[in-house]
């Protein structure tokens, strides 16, 4: 089928301002939007610039604003977009060229939440640390994140204030805060209990809608908020809300 694709383009090296470029391509209804963009780049205009790699929704390179919502170009099919498709760079991050934005502020927020397991390395067992299937399930959803930035750049709070950590960084923190093996929850909760932390979230749910991995992003943010509150109430610096009170692994070890 023939589709019209309108792409928001901008090359600061030569263009005074961003503009819309218009293309028409023949594609299959079951093709990905990424296939259509390649069709443009490979047959019509080699200068069209965008990021992509795996082409099946797992590497997180090609988040774009497609007909007004954030999508991965490789995970949305032409037949679901209609005969006219508008493609723009994701919002809230500086445009470097065409559909390519500066990802550094995004990764800076990610790094700031200490996105790695914090344990006392001296205390590690010789074999694996034990974790029950229920404890593992507790943070399963947030391990799916591919850092594509679709959530963060769909958030109006982030658009208005780029210093807000944003949903993706909070998802990364959640993945560790709720991991029964982790001992750094208090540190991370303190980081997120700040001016640019979780309290900026107004539960607009754009992030959840935008996530190509189906992560319940807004829920994860709410759980982090709750953990901060129950942590404050207990006042002992432990992330109480972060852990099931009845720790299955302790039971397993005691057996």
């Amino acid at each position: 089928m023939r589709v019209k694709i309108h792409v928001r383009r901008f090359n600061p090296e030569q263009d005074p301002a961003p503009y819309w470029a218009h293309y028409e391509v023949d594609v299959e209804p079951t093709d990905r939007l990424l296939d259509a963009l390649h069709e443009i780049k490979w047959r019509i205009d080699g200068s069209l610039s965008f990021r992509r790699s795996c082409a099946h929704g797992i590497c997180g390179s090609d988040a774009m604003l497609v007909n007004g919502v954030n999508r991965l170009a490789c995970k949305v099919l032409i037949k679901d977009l209609g005969p006219e498709i508008r493609v723009e760079p994701i919002r809230g991050l500086p445009v470097l060229r065409d559909l390519i934005v500066d990802m550094e502020p995004f990764f800076e927020a990610y790094r700031a939440v200490k996105p790695y397991l914090i344990v006392d390395e001296e205390q590690l067992p010789e074999r694996e640390q034990l974790q029950s299937p229920e404890e593992r399930e507790r943070f399963d959803d947030t391990t799916k994140c591919i850092l594509c930035a679709a959530c963060t750049t769909s958030c109006p709070i982030f658009w208005a204030n780029g210093r807000y950590f944003g949903p993706a960084a909070i998802v990364a923190a959640h993945r560790f805060i709720f991991d029964s093996r982790d001992q750094g929850a208090a540190e991370r909760l303190a980081i997120l209990d700040s001016r640019d932390g979780v309290w900026r979230c107004r539960t607009i749910f754009n992030c959840t809608d935008a996530c190509p991995r189906g992560i319940q992003v807004t829920r994860a943010i709410q759980e982090v908020k709750q953990a901060i509150v129950s942590n404050r109430l207990r006042g002992d610096g432990r992330a109480t809300g972060a852990r099931a009170p009845d720790r299955a692994a302790d039971r397993l070890r005691a057996q």
């Binding site: 397991l117 074999r127 299937p133 399963d140 391990t143 991991d179 692994a249």
Partner: peptide
């Protein structure tokens, strides 16, 4: 920190 799937006994 790799989140392996677990057996009922936590391994």
């Amino acid at each position: 920190g790799f989140p392996f799937n677990r057996t009922p006994d936590g391994r």
